[in-house]
Design a protein around this nucleic acid. Structure first.
Length: 466
RNA sequence: UCCGGUGUGGCGCAAUGGUAGCGCACUCGGCUGUUAACCGAGUUGUUAGAGGUUCGAGUCCUCUCACCGGAGCCA
């Protein structure tokens, strides 16, 4: 047994019996005084959504000394006994025998009040917002989902692979990159009018990773099934409720999987995650269903039980062309699907997750496997109602000549990717993978509207405080 | 980056170009095994910033900044 520092509120609330000696440590959420000579304190320690009620008699030696500091936000340690509560709202409460004040919080200055705050305001006090019900619940669910990601892959024999954060390859052209350098930017060394990166720390131009996929493929071509789960960086000037400059991505990569196997895994993965969180975060999920999105439990349960719709890109285009819906952007074969098109398909036509696959070659990156029709590649996107794209994946091109040709078509220099091509040169094999945006998953599961509220410290253009 | 919207006490919001107000929070008092506690009283403002129109600007105009929503890019 690990050493006991104090009793966690969650454990006490789930107790089967009265306990003579308990120590609760946490932050005061509310205090209600009774002139009958005692106060009710609600103490929350983050171990669960609700706090535990503490009854503190004013005759306690320690009470008078700390009473004036027992405001919302202050931190206390309370010794006492766990007894059945006569109140309606809770089963258990703690009768205090001693109160120790760790840190007070000036009631007139503490920004968090015992009432609802807008999420915009809470983002300005990101160092205090984890003390709110909503952010606390989001982070507990986020934690469970993280655990669940590992559990899903570990149960299936996948290896957790740590791919590099700093990279010298513009992996897939997946957006603008954050440069990493130790050069003096006021006076960089020059060579023929250009910055001389041979003098930089790594001897070449480097940046933060936009994807661990290419490195993931290397290990999949040796260890068969791997996954990465780590931070990813995109320097796009994106200002939306679905984009972050720093986010976490889950990227499995599997040898011997074709596109169908890839889609099967993606569907199984999402269902596993939703089912797990419904079973293990009940209290928090009920909170989201009550306060954030009244349809969230119904939506998640429905997805766990349904079969994802799978349609060819070409069929999707036909459906959109035949539709009577008026779109801002017109549809034709070869174009990228716009948000409005994806939403129409997942929300109005199928009303469930939709997998669109076999996209035109021209709108997808060089590494995706060409189909026999020479027009489409084995790419797939998983679209969720309301949220949009949560997964993008593909079967990878495993033919050396085809891959080299496509790189040249896309204006990439095969020499730069010599190691990537070596995987096709020596012992190549069919393989596939996908990337899942972790914050978008948390968003979808909790019903939170803005991605900045499902990551502890959001990084977006012009925002890197805290 | 583009389009649209919004910036007013600590927070959430009102105010036909004419004396800046309400709710919550907070402080004090009352009541109470209370629990979004309740009742009464009180404190709180450079109306985002700069300039302009006007007898008079929170309100109209110009610029700047910030935030929100939508779009693009994508996960």
């Amino acid at each position: 047994m690990p050493k006991k520092i104090r009793d966690k509120v969650n454990d006490l609330l789930n107790s089967e019996e009265e306990i003579a000696n308990v120590i609760v440590k946490g932050w005061v959420r509310t205090r209600r005084d009774s002139k009958g000579g005692f106060s009710f304190l609600e103490i929350n320690d983050g171990s669960c959504l609700v706090g535990i009620q503490v009854v503190a008699d004013h005759n306690l030696k320690s009470y008078q000394a700390v009473a004036e500091h027992l405001h919302t936000g202050s931190c206390v340690a309370i010794t006492g006994k766990l007894v059945a509560s006569p109140g309606k709202e809770q089963k258990w409460e703690v009768h205090a025998s001693e109160i120790e004040l760790y840190g007070s919080a000036d009631a007139e200055k503490y920004p968090l009040q015992k009432k609802r705050h807008s999420f915009e305001f809470l983002r300005e006090i990101a160092h205090l917002r984890p003390r709110t019900n909503t952010i606390g619940a989001v982070m507990r669910v986020r934690n469970r989902l993280s655990y669940s990601v590992h559990k899903f892959f570990q149960d299936r024999g996948f290896l957790y692979l740590h791919t590099p954060i700093i990279t010298a390859s513009d992996c897939e052209g997946a957006g603008e990159m954050f440069q990493v350098t130790t050069l003096n930017l006021d006076q960089p060394p020059m060579n023929n009018g250009k910055t001389d990166y041979s003098q930089d720390f790594f001897g070449k131009k480097t940046a933060l990773t936009v994807s661990g996929q290419l490195e993931g493929e290397i290990y999949a071509m040796a260890l068969s099934d791997i996954y990465t789960f780590g931070p990813t960086f995109r320097a796009e000037n994106s200002n939306t409720s679905r984009h972050l400059a720093e986010f976490w991505m889950v990227e499995p990569e599997m040898a011997f999987y074709d596109l169908d196997d890839d889609i099967d895994l993606a569907e199984e993965f999402i269902k596993f995650l939703l089912k797990d969180v419904l079973e293990n975060c009940q209290q928090d999920m009920e909170f989201f269903n009550k306060r954030i999105d009244k349809t969230i439990l119904q939506t998640l349960t429905g997805i766990v039980d349904c079969d994802f719709e799978r349609i060819h890109y070409s069929d999707a285009i036909h459906m959109l062309e035949k539709s009577s819906e008026k779109f801002v952007y017109s549809v034709e074969w070869g174009c990228n699907l716009q948000s409005e098109h994806e939403r129409y398909l997942s929300e109005k036509v199928f009303k469930k997750p939709v997998v669109i696959y076999n996209y035109p070659e021209g709108i997808k990156p060089f590494y995706m496997k060409m189909n026999e029709d020479k027009e489409t590649v084995r790419a797939m996107d998983v679209l969720l109602p309301k949220l949009g794209e949560i997964i993008g994946g593909s079967q990878r091109e495993d033919d050396l000549d085809a891959l080299t040709a496509r790189m040249k078509e896309k204006g990439l220099d095969p020499k730069e990717y010599w190691w990537y091509l070596d995987l096709r040169r020596y012992g190549s094999a069919p393989h596939s993978g996908f990337g899942l945006g972790f914050e978008r998953l948390v968003q979808f599961v909790t019903g939170m509207e803005n991605i900045r509220d499902v990551i502890p410290f959001p990084r977006t253009p012009k925002h890197a405080s805290f």
